[in-house]
Amino acid sequence: MQIFVKTLTGKTITLEVEPSDTIENVKAKIQDKEGIPPDQQRLIFAGKQLEDGRTLSDYNIQKDSTLHLVLR
């Protein structure tokens, strides 16, 4: 499925993911596309910070959802 990741600069990254993918996995995909190390990434969805060990389906993230990427 496709999800979107919006950065603070207003750029939107499109990712191909599975509901069973972990947040860690998603961060690795963002690193592949953007070169941002996962340890600098914070992903936010519906006002919640997403934890590495959980999956997209744990957070009820569905296709065409938009996550927000904050760098630390």
Rank of each mutant, 00 (worst) to 15 (best):
L8A: 07
L69N: 01
L15T: 02
T14R: 07
R72I: 12
I23V: 04
L8Q: 03
I36P: 03
P38R: 05
R54W: 13
V26Q: 00
L50V: 06
S20N: 09
K6P: 01
V17P: 02
D39A: 05
Q49E: 05
V26Y: 00
Q49L: 11
V17W: 02
K33V: 14
K29W: 10
Q31H: 12
P19T: 13
Q62H: 07
G10F: 06
N25S: 09
K27T: 02
G35E: 11
V26A: 04
P19M: 08
Q41I: 07
G47T: 13
P19S: 13
L56V: 07
T12W: 06
I3H: 00
I44P: 00
A46H: 15
I30N: 01
A46I: 13
I3F: 02
N60A: 05
T7Y: 12
F45Q: 03
L8H: 04
I13V: 09
R54N: 04
D58Q: 05
R42E: 12
L43D: 00
I30D: 00
D58L: 15
A28S: 15
I36M: 15
L56D: 00
Y59T: 02
E16P: 14
D52M: 04
G35A: 10
V70H: 03
G47Q: 07
H68D: 07
V5Y: 02
T66N: 12
I36G: 05
E34L: 15
T66K: 06
T7A: 03
K63V: 14
E34M: 05
F45W: 08
T66L: 02
K48P: 01
Q62G: 13
E24R: 10
E24K: 13
P38W: 13
D21Y: 13
K33P: 05
Q2N: 02
N25E: 15
L71N: 08
E16G: 09
R54H: 11
I61D: 00
R42Y: 15
V5E: 00
R72M: 12
A28V: 15
V17Y: 14
A28P: 01
L50A: 02
E18G: 05
E24D: 05
Q62A: 05
E34R: 03
V70Q: 02
Y59E: 13
K11I: 07
Q31G: 05
H68T: 05
S20T: 12
G10E: 03
R54Y: 10
E34Q: 08
K27Y: 14
L50K: 00
L69W: 02
S57K: 15
Q62D: 04
T55V: 08
F4G: 12
L8V: 11
S57Q: 08
E51S: 09
Q40A: 13
G35D: 10
A46V: 14
I36N: 06
S65W: 05
Q2T: 11
L69Q: 02
T9F: 04
T66H: 09
Q40K: 13
T14K: 08
P38G: 06
L8G: 15
L15A: 02
G53N: 06
Q62I: 10
D39T: 10
K48G: 06
G35N: 09
D64R: 10
N25D: 14
E34W: 07
E24N: 02
Y59L: 09
D32N: 13
E51W: 12
L50Y: 01
Q62W: 11
T7P: 06
K6M: 05
V17L: 09
Q40G: 06
V26N: 00
K63G: 13
V70N: 11
L8N: 12
I23Y: 02
T12G: 08
Q49H: 03
P38S: 11
S20R: 02
K27M: 04
S65I: 03
V5L: 13
I61T: 02
G47E: 07
R42F: 06
F45S: 12
E34K: 02
T14S: 14
R72F: 04
K11G: 05
K6N: 15
I23A: 10
Q41G: 11
D64Y: 11
A28F: 14
I61L: 04
F45R: 03
P19V: 11
K29E: 12
R42P: 01
K48E: 04
I61A: 02
G35L: 13
K29S: 09
Q49G: 15
T66Q: 11
K33R: 04
S65D: 12
P37G: 10
G47F: 12
G47K: 08
A46K: 13
L43I: 14
G10L: 06
E51V: 15
N60Q: 09
K33I: 11
T7R: 05
L56G: 01
L71A: 15
G35K: 13
M1T: 09
L69Y: 02
F4A: 05
K11L: 11
G35W: 13
S65V: 07
T14V: 14
V26K: 00
P38T: 08
Y59A: 13
H68P: 01
V5I: 14
D21T: 10
Q40H: 14
M1Y: 06
I30R: 00
E18P: 07
K33L: 04
V70G: 04
I30K: 00
T12N: 05
L71P: 03
N60P: 10
Q2W: 12
T9V: 05
L15S: 01
T12M: 15
I44G: 09
H68S: 11
E16L: 14
F45K: 02
L56M: 06
E24A: 04
K63L: 13
L15G: 00
L56H: 00
K63Q: 08
T7D: 09
I23R: 01
T22M: 08
G47W: 11
S20W: 06
A28G: 08
T22P: 10
K6R: 10
L8P: 11
K11E: 08
D52H: 03
D58S: 05
Q2G: 06
Q31S: 13
Q40E: 12
V17N: 02
E24P: 08
V26W: 01
I23K: 01
D52G: 12
V17F: 12
L67H: 01
K11D: 10
I13G: 02
T12Y: 04
D39W: 07
P37H: 09
E51P: 02
D21A: 14
E24T: 05
F4Q: 03
G53W: 10
L8F: 14
Q41W: 05
N25Y: 11
D52E: 05
P37T: 06
N60D: 12
G53D: 09
E24M: 13
K63Y: 13
I3G: 00
L43M: 09
L69K: 00
Q2E: 11
G10H: 13
Q41P: 02
R54E: 10
L67Q: 01
R54Q: 09
P19I: 14
I13D: 02
Q41M: 11
L71T: 14
L50Q: 01
Q41L: 07
G10T: 06
I61N: 00
L50R: 00
I30Q: 00
H68N: 14
D52S: 10
Q41H: 14
L69F: 02
Q49Y: 14
E18R: 14
K48F: 04
T12Q: 06
I3M: 05
D58G: 13
P19K: 12
V70L: 09
K29Q: 04
L56Q: 00
N60H: 15
T55R: 15
F45P: 00
L69T: 01
K27Q: 03
K6T: 15
D21W: 03
K48L: 03
Q40N: 13
R42K: 04
S57I: 08
Q62N: 13
